[in-house]
């Protein structure tokens, strides 16, 4: 089972002829992901790693039945690439691209939520992996082991570190989702948590947050009211100096939220044990699973 992607997902890569696009297409294929098509405008008819390239997403969907898109298009063109995928009816759009202007994402995310059926993951994210079935994005595949732990994270390399710790401790994963580190993202913690709650393969969830915004506090509220499966948390940036980027107006909106203390407090109050360091996570997960099974 797992969530969002599985062995049957048909993946399309937007920006497949670029350096990153081509490299990660090969990595995804090697992992066993069904990469069925690529899109680069003007390069239709070519092939990359045996994958046919199309000029438009609509063409690629029509010819191959792709239902997931992975975007490696440079930042100035990525918002348009997301919209193109959504308008072609792609169900799951995973945008790896970093550095997209925030106002572009405000428009794109609002349009996607209101006018389409598509779900966006990212931008500025490592993508997602369902262990031993399908990897969409840039996560290093060899770290994963199939199992029952779901992981959702705002980080990239820190996620790999934690997957590595879990695997070393014998805790395999169902699906690991990197939701991205930008202020405006398509999928937040509370969009992923219900999927794990409903997934029969997932028995426990690891939530990896960091300073800024209030997504962790909102997730804590959701966990308290809706999650029956155990959740273990980690918050990065606990000693970071406050307010480096925030101006006056930002402080008004978050109303005291966004600090690591606030996040740790909210999650702890929601019954989520918080690891002090990533290597403490496996022990907390094992403990939480034991308590839950009892």
């Amino acid at each position: 089972m797992a969530i969002l992607v599985d062995a049957n997902s048909k993946v399309l890569v937007q920006g497949i002829t670029g350096r990153e696009g081509e490299f990660h297409t090969r990595q995804m294929l090697e992992y066993g992901t069904k990469v069925v098509a690529g899109v680069t405008p003007g390069k239709g008819g070519q092939e990359v790693a045996g994958v046919p390239v199309f000029d438009t997403v609509k063409q690629a969907v029509r010819e191959t039945g792709a239902n997931v898109s992975c975007i490696f298009v440079p930042a100035p063109f990525a918002p348009d690439a997301i919209l193109e995928a959504a308008d072609a009816g792609i169900e799951l759009i995973v945008c790896i691209t970093e550095g997209i202007p925030v106002q572009d994402m405000v428009r794109v995310v609002n349009y996607l939520k209101r006018c389409t059926q598509s779900r966006l993951i990212g931008p500025n994210c490592p993508g997602l992996t369902t262990a031993k079935e399908c990897k969409v994005g840039i996560m290093p595949g060899m770290l994963f082991r199939k199992g029952s732990i779901g992981l959702v994270s705002r980080s990239g390399t820190l996620t790999y570190e934690i997957v590595y710790e879990l695997t070393q401790a014998g805790l395999g994963q169902s699906t690991c989702v990197g939701i991205g580190g930008d202020p405006i993202i398509g999928t937040t913690f509370i969009d992923v948590l219900p999927l794990f709650e409903a997934d029969p393969q997932t028995e426990a969830v690891v939530l990896v947050g960091e300073i800024g915004g209030s997504d962790e506090e909102i997730a804590a509220e959701y966990i308290k009211n809706h999650m029956t499966k155990p959740v273990v948390g980690f918050i990065s940036g606990r000693t970071a100096p406050p307010g480096k980027r925030m101006g006056h107006a930002g402080a008004i909106i978050s109303g005291g939220k966004g600090s690591p203390q606030s996040k740790v407090k909210a999650l702890t109050e929601a019954g989520v044990p918080i690891a002090d360091t990533p290597s403490d996570i496996p022990a907390l997960v094992k403990q939480a699973l034991e308590n839950w099974r009892r």
């Binding site: 980080s155 990239g156 570190e161 580190g181 940036g237 000693t239």
Partner: peptide
């Protein structure tokens, strides 16, 4: 370090 989350976490570890 490599990756913002990991570096942030490393900063925490050094402080710890």
């Amino acid at each position: 370090g490599n990756g913002a989350g990991l570096v942030m976490c490393t900063v925490d570890e050094v402080a710890r």
